[in-house]
Design a protein around this nucleic acid. Structure first.
Length: 431
RNA sequence: UCCCCUGUAGCUCAGCGGUAGAGCAGCUGACUGUUAAUCAGCGGGUCGCUGGUUCAAUCCCAGCCGGGGGAGCCA
């Protein structure tokens, strides 16, 4: 008896093996039973005809409900009519547990219902495919950084009031020290670390209490941030385009079945290769106005603006050098145009919107302090951050990539909530 | 914070001022190659909540609660 898993069936054609898994679906036709079994590595059709197995075994199959856990023994054979190309001619069934009637059926369901059952929804083949793609995207990015000598720096989740915008912080009591806030970014911390280790990154959950109820927002999402000492804005963009391309090519190589399951247009992924086009913000505004957008110089791009620019290219596009007043205090002023900053947002292709925000950081003490005061930020909380500009300040740049937005785009799915195992949104805290 | 849509069987939905309907799922049966199998039969309901109009409200009106989509903002 060989115990194995579905992904290894190709090595056992003609042999008898035992699989352990769950019943995904069941069909019958007179004296024949088809059991569709999943085991976490794939899906296989198992078949049994009355008279070819003991009657007791045959009747056992009729007691199985959807998602019942079981072990099946049988002979592996090549069968094009079976999903995956192999099927198991059953000789025995061992029941682990008969499942209660399963709420998620083979028919359509609404999003509210599926969200309430997210713990079970994850078992469906579509969610399975998305989670596999997410996994490969994350590993590809970690591998990319590791191969280039970047050092992983884990930034704190609990912070004092520091980050982007005070209106969207989650707060909690912190002993006798007042309020603590869930991190919105690890950027300021890895800026400190890059002065020690040169090229660093952090990867962890971040929290935004924004009341954004759209298919592109989560209140808890995972972000990868890179920070590089002695690196300018252009150097940072080079790293970003290579990283994003590396992730796209990795899932092309490793997730073909999953992309097919999701009916992803593969040709749209194959063109994701460096270099990505760079469009200056000022030029973008002109282009958008020619296309009928009401955008004026000085404001951020709207969702429709992003789609227009994105659709003009077959790969992601950088929008560079935004107006200073539309961006965060820590971005370095552009010496060529002091109304703008040295920053770049990366818009994913196919209208999927922004996936990276990045910039060269302000490395001049006086200018940074002036910006903190201009924005009326709590100066005391930024004392240590200002220190970095006192002790061997150097030009440095960094960026943050939203994992779920990237997965949504690469997997070609519609809603960000499917790109994370247990989404946290304004209306979702359970399961 | 703003705009729009929505709430009826376990699920997806239809419906109407006169006490409720389909498909799927479930259960029972038929069928030896099914692919969301098919076919026949059966059971299944506080029509989101509260109030109002009315002889009569699931239906019309108001408020509340829940859900979805979009905008803004961001990753």
């Amino acid at each position: 008896m060989i115990d194995t898993t579905i992904n290894y069936l190709k090595d056992y054609v003609g042999q008898e093996v035992r699989l352990s898994g769950w019943l995904y679906n069941k069909r019958s036709s007179g004296k024949i039973r088809f059991l569709l079994v999943r085991d976490g590595t794939g899906l296989v059709q198992c078949i049994m005809a009355k008279g070819e197995v003991p009657d007791a075994t045959f009747e056992l199959s009729d007691s199985l409900t959807q998602e019942s856990s079981l072990k099946v023994t049988g002979t592996v054979r090549v069968e094009p009519r079976s999903p995956g190309g192999f099927e198991l001619g059953l000789t025995n069934i061992e029941i682990v547990q008969i499942a209660e009637p399963y709420p998620i059926t083979k028919k359509e369901h609404g999003v509210d219902f599926l969200h309430d059952l997210r713990h079970l929804w994850l078992r469906s083949s579509r969610q399975y495919a998305i989670m596999k793609i997410r996994n490969e995207v994350i590993w590809a990015i970690r591998e990319f950084f590791y191969n280039r000598g970047f050092v992983l720096i884990d930034s704190p989740i609990l912070t004092a009031a520091i980050g982007e915008e005070s209106s969207s912080l989650f707060e909690t009591e912190y002993f006798k020290m007042g309020k603590a806030y869930l991190a919105q970014t690890g950027q300021l911390y890895i800026e400190a670390a890059c002065m020690s280790l040169r090229n660093v990154f952090c990867f962890g959950p971040t929290f935004r209490a924004e009341k954004s109820l759209t298919r592109r927002h989560l209140t808890e999402f995972w972000m990868v941030e890179g920070e590089m000492a002695y690196c300018d804005a252009e150097g940072s963009m080079k790293i970003q385009e290579e990283m994003v391309s590396y992730a796209a090519q990795a899932i092309l190589k490793k997730c073909r079945p999953e992309l097919e399951k999701l009916e992803r247009d593969i040709t749209k992924l194959e063109t994701i290769l460096p270099p990505f086009p760079r469009v200056d913000y000022g030029d973008a505004v002109k282009i958008l106005q020619e296309h009928g957008s009401s955008i004026t110089w000085g404001t951020d791009l709207g969702a429709e603006d992003e789609t227009i620019l994105s659709n003009m290219h077959d790969r992601p596009v950088f929008i560079t050098n935004y107006p200073k007043r539309a961006k965060a205090f820590y971005m370095k002023e552009n010496p060529a145009n002091t109304e703008t900053v040295l920053c770049a947002d990366l818009l994913a292709s196919e209208g999927y919107g922004e996936i990276i925000g990045g910039s060269q950081r302000e490395d001049n003490y006086d200018k940074l302090l002036a910006r903190i005061r201009e924005e009326k930020l709590p100066e005391a909380a930024y004392g240590w951050y200002l220190d970095l500009r006192k002790y061997g300040s150097v030009p440095h740049s960094g960026f943050g990539l939203g994992i779920e937005r990237t997965v949504t785009w690469l997997a070609g799915i519609h809603h960000i909530r499917e790109a994370i195992p247990f989404p946290r949104m304004i209306t979702r805290l359970y399961p």
